[in-house]
Amino acid sequence: MKPGKFTYHAPENLHAANQLLAELGDDAKIIAGGQSLIPVMNLRLAQPDHLIDINGISELAGIHQENGLFTLGCLTRHADVETSPLLMDKFPLLPAAAKRIGHLAIRNRGTIGGSLCNADPAAEWPLIAILLDAHLSIQSSGGERHTPAKEFIQSVYTVDLGADEILTTVAFPPLARGEGWAVNQICRRTGDFALVSVAVTLKLDRQGHIERLRLCLGSMDVTPFRLIDVEQAARGKIPDKAWIHEMAGIAFDAGSPESDMHASAQYRREMAAHLTSEVLTEALGRCRAGT
């Protein structure tokens, strides 16, 4: 298990990285944290001719609150999200999600950008980015473009990224005041990829009716996905036990999960229902604590 040969590039700025990508095209691969890429290179399942290391591009790291958004540079390590005082205070959903990724040593190296570009349907960041309608900024030598997470993540390990493009930042719109949230997952062991994951945000109005619901399921299809119709239909409803039960039933039927050696599709459906009920209850608790 040793990687094949490659030519190593360490551009010092984004512009140089874009130029290299434009030059080398499909023969090149960007390495950020490398926590998903290097294992497959060690197994020689991936053998890029060129590796473009963006770790030295300091402008790509960092957590900022700007223009009402929380913007994370693509090189932000999971552990930095997990321990960011700003996020722990203002956006605790993100540290809570980061904490569920792999193990400490992996979180210390792996990046949010890498996770999004890898687009594993069981991974944490695609789930959260789609849940929260994150805006992604993408840079090529031709310029910058922006795309919502749900359009960026297209399928298993497939994203909307041109050969010369680099994901630079992920911007999360903050939760509304009093908006509850919860993230949960079923894993075989701590740190394993989720067999099923569910994330939710829930905003109630003063009368306790649902004002806004966002519900996102992971590992239940080729990408994490929101239950948009259900979210809209929930507006104005009272989130009682019967409603939670109904939502669990909807989650059960959602998506088209696969069977693999760790879990059958049927098990995944059951757990989607179970987790939906759990996270809605937890999020409701947060709503009520916040109001």
């Binding site: 190593y8 290097i38 040593a105 210390n108």
Partner: peptide
């Protein structure tokens, strides 16, 4: 430890 933080040395190239 890389810059004081535990990390996997099998998931980093030495050149990095």
């Amino acid at each position: 430890l890389i810059d004081g933080r535990p990390q996997r040395s099998c998931l980093t190239f030495a050149i990095q």
